[in-house]
C-alpha cells in the first residue's frame, strides 16, 4: 500500500548546499533508493545520485540515511515510522561533488599504495596449490564490495582531514590482512609497512567499520586486530625478536 514519505535531501555542491524537504509516494517493499529515484523523476530532475545494481553488491549507492552510512538500495522504507522524516545526505568523509555524490578517489589512491600479491619465485602459473583451510580465513575479506562505508564512518579520517595522508583506512587494512594471511604471498614486510606507512597504529578499534559493513565482514576482529597483533610480534615483543635472532622465529621484516 502506498504511503506519503517525508524526506530531507541534501542538495548542493562544494560552494553551497543544504537540506531540502520533499514529500514523495512510497510503495510497499520499496527501498530508499527507489524513493530517491521517484523524487528525481517527479520533483528534482537534476538530483545527482550514484547507483548501479540495486542489489547491495556494487557498493555505488553509499550515502548517509538518518546520519548512518548505509547502502540506499538495502534500506527498506518500511523500517521507518509512518510520521518519520528520513534525512538523506552524501557521505560526510569525502569531498562533495554534487547532491548525493561525493569524490571517493581518496580510496583509489590508497588502493594503489598497497603492495600487490607477490608470487613465489619459480612457481609457474597453474602449479600453485593451496589448502582450503589456509585460504578460507582471508576469503571473508574478498566479500568486500568497496562501498567505502567503512572508510566514511572511520573517525580517523572522517573527523580529521589531515590524517588522510597517512591512514589507509579499514577497507585497506582488510586488503593487507588478506595478503598477509595468504599462504603463497611472499612479500615479507607487510606488517611493518602496515604500521609505518599505512597508519594501522592510528586505528583505536572502536569498531564502527564493522558496524556499518553491509557484507558483515568482521573487519576489526578478523583483520585489524590480527594485524595489530602481528605488528606486536615484530615490533613490541622482545621474546619474538630474540627468537628471530637465534633463528627460531620468522625474521623481523
Amino acid at each position: 500500500m502506498a504511503r506519503k514519505l517525508n524526506l530531507r535531501i541534501w542538495r548542493g555542491d562544494s560552494t553551497d548546499g543544504g537540506l531540502q524537504n520533499v514529500q514523495v509516494e512510497a510503495n510497499e517493499g520499496e527501498v530508499v533508493l527507489d524513493v530517491i529515484h521517484r523524487v528525481q523523476a517527479t520533483q528534482m530532475g537534476d538530483l545527482a545520485v550514484r547507483w548501479n545494481c540495486k542489489a547491495g553488491k556494487c557498493g555505488s549507492c553509499s550515502m548517509e540515511i538518518n546520519g548512518k552510512p548505509r547502502l540506499a538500495c538495502m534500506i527498506q522504507v518500511a523500517s521507518f515510522g509512518d510520521n518519520e522524516t528520513i534525512t538523506v545526505t552524501p557521505l560526510r568523509a569525502f569531498p562533495i561533488i554534487k547532491d548525493l555524490v561525493t569524490d571517493v578517489s581518496f580510496n583509489y589512491k590508497k588502493a594503489m599504495e598497497i603492495p600487490a600479491y607477490a608470487h613465489p619465485d619459480g612457481l609457474a602459473p597453474g602449479d600453485a596449490r593451496m589448502e582450503q583451510v589456509d585460504v578460507e580465513r582471508s576469503q571473508e575479506f574478498r566479500k568486500c564490495i568497496e562501498c567505502f562505508l567503512c572508510q566514511d564512518v572511520c573517525h580517523v579520517v572522517r573527523d580529521h582531514e589531515e590524517n588522510k595522508k597517512s591512514f589507509a583506512g579499514p577497507r585497506f587494512f582488510i586488503r593487507i590482512a588478506e595478503l598477509d594471511m595468504h599462504p603463497l604471498d611472499m612479500l615479507k614486510n607487510r606488517k611493518k609497512t602496515a604500521q609505518e606507512e599505512h597508519g594501522l597504529g592510528m586505528c583505536n578499534i572502536t569498531k564502527c567499520c564493522t558496524e556499518v559493513c553491509p557484507e558483515h565482514i568482521r573487519i576489526t576482529d578478523n583483520a585489524i586486530i590480527p594485524m595489530k597483533e602481528r605488528v606486536v610480534d615484530i615490533k613490541y615483543d622482545p621474546l619474538r625478536w630474540l627468537g628471530s635472532k637465534i633463528g627460531k622465529r620468522e625474521g623481523i621484516v
Binding site: G67, K68, H155, D159, N163, G199, G201, I205, T206, C208
Partner: peptide, 27 residues
C-alpha cells in the same frame, strides 16, 4: 573500544563527530 567511546569520545558513537581537533591514535 568501550572507554575510547564512553570516556574519551573518540568517537562517542559511529558517525558522531568527536570533539578533538587532533588525533594520532595509538602511534
Amino acid at each position: 573500544k568501550s572507554y575510547y567511546r564512553a570516556f574519551w569520545m573518540s568517537p562517542p558513537a559511529c558517525a558522531v563527530a568527536e570533539p578533538h581537533t587532533k588525533y594520532t591514535g595509538e602511534t
